[in-house]
Amino acid sequence: MTTHSTSAAAVPRTADQLAVQRARRSSRVKAALHGFGLLVVLFGTLFPFLWMVSTSLKTTNQIFSKPPLLLFTGTLEHYRTILGEQYNVGGSLVNSLIVATTATVLAVLLGTPAAYALARFDFRRKDDLWFWFISNRFMSPVVIILPVYLLASQLRLIGHPGLLIAMYLTFSIPVVVWICTDQFRSIPRELDEAAMVDGASPGFIFLRIALPLALPGVVVSSILSFIFSWNELLFALFLTRGDGVTSPVRATNFLSGYDVPWGAIMATGTLIVLPVVIFSLLVSRHLVQGLTMGAIK
């Protein structure tokens, strides 16, 4: 960026000196702008999250105060309320944990061998099969929830945690297959071939040689499938009941009624979000890599 305006106060010097001065000033302005931009980004990113946490710690009166309070003495009353028997958010968090963990473990158990086969073996229509796995990632859950609801209600399965876990496999298996196929491909084939010459069975090679080397991919894909399952609402909304609901469903239950308990809602939100946020911050580098699903290598 070159500017042609010269300061009126500037004493005329050589052209070189002028350019250096100008460059120095403009770089200082640039740096200030850069810093300001970063602050805006930081503030914009964090504010809604912090606003949720701080609201969860306010008394009901403080929440409705005008102007909104920035400083206040906190209270844990909303956390006590939501963890009590009436709302039982604790129970729903446990449900979420069970469902998300089981779905993730199953997805890894089923997905990694499939990814290995797609990466290592040649067979007819392999591309189509790979494409079919991946395309599940693009399918809207609305398309499946209608028939699954009807089928499950005829089989009297609604409310069974296994049903929700099975539904979560529709997106977690593709995530595992997608990321791990790439990962297995990056392992030199020679390793497998050498082991095969030594007489190792394909199962042994997969478990003892390929899988340990593909561990980063397995970790990233499990983190993603856990987060996706933990955050999911649509399936859970229609397929869970009563004490079996997951935490996102519980969070939607507050919404109507005479008074909207904002403190309790934000406390619930905080409890749902905090574990995944901390978890993601710990693995942020891998998370970003995983989110692109290997689209960028």
């Binding site: 809604p48 995944v276 970003v288």
Partner: peptide, 14 residues
């Protein structure tokens, strides 16, 4: 990373 990990249900509530 925080917005990315945020449960969308909670984003709506916020």
């Amino acid at each position: 990373v925080i917005p990315l990990a945020m449960t969308p249900v909670v984003t709506g509530l916020i």
